[in-house]
Design a protein around this nucleic acid. Structure first.
Lengths: 209, 209
DNA sequence: ACCTGAACACCGTTCAAGT
DNA sequence: ACCTGAACACCGTTCAAGT
């Protein structure tokens, strides 16, 4: 066939096709992506150099789609109360992956931080510093925020049977599971509670406790 | 060759060989495991039914090795202050994976909960209930503990370059990165801080705040 | 510059055949 | 019951050949 007059592929097009596959099945294959784009597998290598690069492209795509990389109305310069800023940022961060839950295990495998994520950390750092968190603990707090967001996202991706009653043996855990709601609602509520605890903890640090 | 008089393989032997590979390279292959055990790839299928089952076997092995599944001196019946019990449990949980950091992304892919992990959640639930955390929030708190532990373990597994100064653009983040120590120490300190925040937050819940 | 077709080394898994 | 050898369908990746 030779070269087409206008390119059939692009990195973003590849990422979008792969993301659609991951959303649907939790996995993707070079051959499947090529099929979806009506192209031969080897053609992809004119635009990406490995399967891992496609994963990175998907991560970047998801962040751009969620508006995390943009300098939006919640940027560091915002003069509002830092609690609300932090809550909004972490919520937005989690929301990105809430829409693409099955991507989470894939990006967890590589912990490379794309520029989009770094921009998010920059914002968070500015906000926390403005809230008087000591420099020496800034990175630790950010690490915990990251853990909570990623944990919440993973929790969101997990099938409902994670908390299977029949596996639990203690009365306390059985009661807890029975009180809990269904998948998405429970996960959202758990995240809200985590944000409460996080913000309260940060406030204590800022007060020099 | 035919059947040997005494079996050459067992599930645990396979898991141990695979774990050694993962510890060394972050990956494992059926062929590699077979080679390490001086056996043919197809032989493994007399003891496990898939590659995924080997991952599960590794998870189980790591927990047994770390003593998480045992009913140890820190069991639910312990009458000491709940803060210390919670701290010790989560620390022990994280420690399991600290010794096998590269296993983390693999077990994160499947979120199946083995009996060993469930036993850990049972203990945690009993402790938190005894500490007067309301039933309705028990599972949310457990979810957050899980997030923090897994996040800390992932953080431990990540290469040092996660927080690459040259990627950061804000003064606050650059300062934070420069103040932070090296890999293991920083990660340990971050986890300690997370435990502080976690325990303080739980205490607030228990007080009915 | 960009798509193709053929080829490469490797992958996980199955199963009849051996003892 | 348990290891083997051969086979299967598939995998990611490379590269000379085409336009």
């Amino acid at each position: 066939m030779g070269r087409p007059r206008t390119p059939l592929l692009s990195k973003d097009a590849i990422a979008m096709a792969a993301l659609r596959l991951v959303d649907g099945t939790g996995e993707f294959t070079i051959a499947q992506v090529a099929d979806a784009l009506r192209v031969r597998p080897s053609s992809l290598y004119n635009h990406v150099s490995s399967k891992g690069e496609i994963v990175e492209a998907m991560r970047s795509l998801v962040f751009r789609e969620g508006g995390v990389s943009r300098e939006g109305g919640l940027a560091a310069g915002d003069s509002g109360p830092w609690e609300q800023t932090v809550r909004a940022m972490l919520r937005r961060y989690r929301e990105c992956f809430a829409r693409h839950q099955r991507l989470i295990p894939l990006v967890t495998a590589y912990t490379v931080s794309s520029p989009e994520v770094m921009g998010m950390y920059d914002e968070l750092a500015e906000t926390l510093r403005a809230a008087d968190v000591p420099d020496g603990q800034l990175l630790d707090v950010i690490t915990m925020c990251d853990s909570v967001v990623f944990g919440a996202a993973l929790d969101l991706a997990a099938p409902d049977e994670v908390w299977a009653v029949d596996q639990a043996r203690s009365p306390a855990l059985i009661a807890a599971i029975q009180q809990a709601g269904s998948g998405r609602q429970r996960s959202d509520r758990a995240f809200d509670l985590a944000l409460d605890i996080l913000v309260a903890g940060i406030a204590r640090l800022a007060d020099g406790a």
